[in-house]
Nucleic acid binder design. Sequence first.
RNA 1: CGGGGAGUAGCGCAGCCUGGUUAGCGCGCCUGCCUUGGGAGCAGGAGGUCGUCGGUUCAAAUCCGAUCUCCCCGACCA
Length: 483
Amino acid sequence: MKREERLVTQITPKSEDFSRWYVDVIRRAELADYAPMKGMMVIRPYGYAIWENIQAHLDRRIKATGHVNAYFPLFIPESFLRKEMDHLKGFAPEVAWVTHGGQEELEERLAVRPTSEAIIGAMYAKWIQSWRDLPVLINQWANVVRWEKVTRPFLRTTEFLWQEGHTAHETEEEAREETLKILRLYQEFIETELAIPVIAGKKTSKEKFAGALETYSVEALMSDGRALQMGTSHHLGQHFSRVFNIRFEDRNQNLQYVWQTSWGVSTRLIGAVIMSHGDDSGLKLPPRIAPIQVIIVPISIGNWKEKVLPVALDLEKKLAAAGIRVKLDAREEYTPGWKFAEYELRGVPLRVEVGPRDIKENQVILVRRDNGEKLATSQDNLVERIIDCLEAIQKNLFTLALNFQKENTHDVDSYEDFKKIIEERRGFIRAWWCGEVSCEEAIKEETSATIRVIPLEKIREGEGCCLYCKKKATDYVYFARAY
RNA sequence: CGGGGAGUAGCGCAGCCUGGUUAGCGCGCCUGCCUUGGGAGCAGGAGGUCGUCGGUUCAAAUCCGAUCUCCCCGACCA
């Protein structure tokens, strides 16, 4: 879109400067604002409403699979973090420490949780004695702090909101099943509610979580061609149960350590929604998570208050009764054109225009944010038509994102092609890999692309040789430059 | 944490090099009139410790030092 043709100004065009566009959208749509401390942001009401909708959809799924919510402390004693050395080493550089309580210096420093495995492990040790106590399936919605060096609103902030599930099981098999069940749950949730297609797979040992046996993740491709990790699910094995002494007496009266998992998604998902669907005019929110699904704009001409407003009010009432998140903007201080642009910027999926002309025709104008289509629609059965339209928008956003992902996924056999694509087009690149960390690191060093996942689905038959070292390959994997 | 750029009204910027009346402009905001089918028009008005701290000077937005924050590109991460 040419600059002068754009309907919404005041944000940098996406094609001109993606990073700036991203930040402009966040600020203009009032999703978040910078706080006066480095790397911290305020999630404003409109942004928080999106998070609440995300929470509602995900929480329902988490509970439907037998998990319950609880809340653990914000602080973790240093000695607890030190118990699992890989875990400590992984997080040490980014932990914020509390050293004083009031005027008193603490005998032992307290970490502001970067994640809660340690404190939850300590509690599980107290709660679990018998196989009858298992499995323990607990989730918590919380904030965590990681002192990152480089931050970006929603994608990487010093403090962020997330959910973290922590489970304990009798057998390794059960824990692995849980890990994969959650990974699939995340995939279904993200694709259904956020309309973002993801690749589910396993992380390489280099990329796995500090302290885990195996890490799985769902990865999405953003519209600038970079990958974003959208959720992770870890099979922790017995690493934490051994150091926190989480033991139980099994069915054969043997004392055993539990098998654990942990998994999470964060407010980063909001960043993914912005980057996956947005355009030069601003946000495009999937209806399922949009704080406002339908905006009604009355065309305020002549005696509109007598003729148009009652129809608009009636429609608002009916839509609200049908469970639609609807808003009627009848303010006289702003022109209809101004409102059109404003709600487009804010990503409202569907706009209903009602004017004197429409009243005469017994119709309204529906305008879709996903494709800009304007549809003159009869007022008969309008609520049903709107519900169908929202469903169509949700589906279309997913389809558009899926097409983009497909168009930007490249299969390569030669390292030369690999480098060329990474430089010129980015996107996902699929290639054979030998399983060696050395090749993974060399490729990262030379191209800054990393292995995002070893996909769960087999995507290529036969055998091949490693993209880098040309030795026999073990896996056909996804590479990308990532956030 | 390394390299680069930037902080002047809510937002976007000019002024700084070459120090000197009352620090400007566009958008936004307030009041009034008039308008309203894609961010209307006219008139009047409010809003600033020039990021912060310190130094040089008769005089600092401007020169010097320190510090905080943001953006971009790398190394690290949800």
